[in-house]
Structures are given as C-alpha cells and as structure tokens.
C-alpha cells in the first residue's frame, strides 16, 4: 500500500478524515518552509502538499499568490522544491508536490517524475493538467511509481468525472468552490453532491479542497469525504504567527476532521 493510502486508511480507522496541508516551498524562506511544514505535521497534518512556485498561478487567490511571489523572490528553484520534499518525506510524512504544468514539462516529464521519486515524494497534483493532455505524464508517473492526482470540479459532468477517475491514482481532489484558492466564509452544498457523484466512479479516497479554512468547515466535509485539504489558511497563519501559529491551526483542524 502506498504511503498516501496508508494515511487515508489510518484516518479511516480513527473515524476521521485525513488532514492534508499545503504550503509553497520557499515560503516564508527555504528553511522556514521546512520548519513550518514540520510544525503542521506536529499539529496533526497527515499528508503534505508542497507547492512549486510558478510565475503565473491562475488557480490561486491573493494569499497564495503573495506567498509564491515571496518564494520566487527568494530565488526558489525546482531543485529547492525537490530538496524540501526530501526533508519532509525523510520524516516519514507522505509528501506530494502541487505544480502547474509548465515547470514539469520544461524540466522534462520523465525527469521530473524520476526526481520526485528519488526525493521520496509520493505523488504530484497538477491543477491545470487534465487527463486529455496527460499521456506522457501517465507513463512517467507509472514507471516511477508515484501517484498522479487530477481534480474534479463542481462543474464536472459525470462523464468527465469518470474520465478523471480513470486516470487518477492516490486520491481524487474535489474542488469545493468554483474559483481560485483562498479562504471562504461559506461553502456550497454542491460539494457533497460532487463527492457522491465521484464515489460512483471510483474507489479511490476523495479529498476536498479550495476555500476550506476553518475547523467547522473541516468538520462538515469530514462527514462525507476522506480528506480535507487546507492551504491559504496555513499561509495566513504563518504570516500572522510563524510556525507556531501553523501548528496551532493544524491542531484545531485535526479536531475538526473527526467524524461525529
């Protein structure tokens, strides 16, 4: 069983959803990101998503855009992202990278997958790659034994969900809002329907992200999904109070993901 599936299985056995935490590599600094991610894990994050900073993050709202700008201004390169993966994965934490497609294609699809595997990474989430364009990526991830995670959206038809589900490995990422990343005060009830529709198409764990920031939202989602993904809220916490604040948020969210 993969590290990712082990983490979901452990959460399930504890009657809760898995908590998945996102942070861009190189934010607030190269070493600061490693420290903050370790604090998130200490606070209860089960699976880590490390963002690969990109110049044109069209899926991200202002919070993550600013964090990514800081990271790029710090000079973060792909090699630094892989080094961050190596540090976190060596702690035994299942670690994915979330990356827009162009940096992967530029480095080389095979090379990127191989270097992720060598760094101990568990998989890669690609928010602007759909299965239609993923033929080479499917081969590269299979041959390097890392997971590839595609997304389903509230606007996805059942036919498209089936297409995505057929190509995804690890888990399926269900977008909770139509829009970019960033904390929302309320989430649409349609996401529960999206998770239900996705369950019809796949036995993989389903994790819900985009707009999720509070323990209350995590609690609601945990009742019907296998994982809860939080990103911008960790960036906000770190901006306000550094690694300690990130750990406190993770502790609160890890209470939230318990099923009642």
């Amino acid at each position: 069983m993969s590290k990712i599936h082990e983490a979901f299985a452990r959460a399930r056995s504890e009657n809760r959803a898995a908590l998945i935490g996102y942070l861009p590599a190189g934010f607030p600094t190269r070493d600061g990101a490693i420290e903050c991610i370790r604090a998130m894990v200490a606070g209860g994050v089960d699976i880590v998503e490390i963002g690969l900073p990109y110049s044109d993050p069209v899926m991200d709202g202002p919070t993550i855009q600013e964090a990514v700008d800081i990271s790029l201004a710090n000079g973060t390169k792909i090699v630094d992202v892989l080094d961050t993966v190596k540090h976190i994965a060596s702690d035994g934490t299942p670690t994915l990278v979330m990356s827009y497609w162009n940096p992967i294609e530029r480095l080389g699809v095979d090379k990127f997958a191989a270097e992720m595997a060598a760094a101990g990474g568990a998989g890669v989430i690609t928010p602007d790659l759909t299965p239609e364009e993923a033929a080479a990526w499917n081969v590269a991830t299979d041959s390097n034994h890392i997971d590839r995670v595609f997304l389903v959206a509230l606007s996805s038809t059942n036919e498209r969900i089936a297409t995505v589900a057929a190509e995804t490995t690890g888990f399926i990422y269900a977008g909770a809002v139509m829009g970019v990343t960033g904390a929302r005060t309320s989430l649409s009830g349609a996401v529960q329907d999206l998770v239900a529709r996705t369950r019809q198409a796949s036995d993989l764990p389903i994790a819900v992200g985009l707009g999720v920031s509070t323990p209350e939202q995590a609690h609601d989602i945990a009742q019907y999904a296998d994982g809860v993904i939080v990103g911008s809220a960790f960036v906000n916490a770190i901006n306000a109070g550094g690694a300690q604040a990130a750990q406190q948020l993770a502790e609160q969210l890890s209470v939230g993901v318990k099923r009642s």
Binding site: M59, P127, D128, T130, S155, S156, T157, R160, G175, M178
Partner: peptide, 20 residues
C-alpha cells in the same frame, strides 16, 4: 477535436473550466 495544431495547442486549464 482536442484543439491540437500538430504538437501545439490543446487545453491546459483547471477542470472547473472544461465544461465552459
């Protein structure tokens, strides 16, 4: 049918935009 001009073109977008 997928918008490719030889090796170029296609669709590299968030899933949320595919339906539109």
């Amino acid at each position: 049918t997928l918008g490719h001009f030889g090796p170029f073109g296609g669709r590299f977008v968030p899933e949320a935009l595919m339906a539109a």
